[in-house]
């Protein structure tokens, strides 16, 4: 399922560079020791401006999901319907990621079960974290 390509910007470049190395990193506020995702210029917890990027274990959990039947993104429309799940990270359950759950049929999502990160190519070759159900 080909996702749109990604053009990394200043804010997100470390995230995308790590993905190309098959590593999942999350922005981390060095002032209050808080992870945040999506990345932002300012920490939503303490308004801090200093960040590093912490590598995650790549393990997570399916919180909930929906099945997209009629979405707005042209490149994905021929693959409808498809799952979009909310994944929470084992390293910090407050941190979410989105996933198409490759390998899981639409609507057959085993919520509250474990997933593991994989990395997929997008349309321009940039890799993106995706998630597979752990059998």
């Amino acid at each position: 399922m080909p996702k749109q390509g990604v053009i990394p910007d200043d804010l997100t470049a470390p995230f995308w560079a790590a993905a190309n190395e098959h590593r999942l990193v999350i922005q981390h506020c060095t002032s209050c020791d808080r992870l945040q995702h999506p990345p932002a210029d300012k920490c939503a917890g303490c308004s801090g401006l200093e960040f590093d990027w912490q590598e995650m274990s790549g393990r997570g959990y399916i919180y909930s999901y929906g099945v997209v039947h009629d979405g707005p993104v042209r490149m994905l429309q021929e693959d409808q319907p498809f799952n979009v799940a909310i994944i929470t990270l084992d390293d910090d359950p407050d941190i979410q990621m989105l996933s198409h759950l490759p390998g899981t049929p639409p609507g057959e999502v085993p919520v509250k079960t474990s997933v593991r990160v994989i990395f997929e190519d997008t349309a321009n070759g940039q890799k993106v974290p995706e998630w597979r159900v752990v059998e």
């Binding site: 910007d9 997209v68 979405g71 996933s99």
Partner: peptide, 15 residues
């Protein structure tokens, strides 16, 4: 890159 990870516009095509 930022839009690709956002709530409304993202790579996963959520309406």
């Amino acid at each position: 890159g930022s839009a690709a990870l956002a709530a409304l516009t993202n790579l996963w095509g959520t309406p």
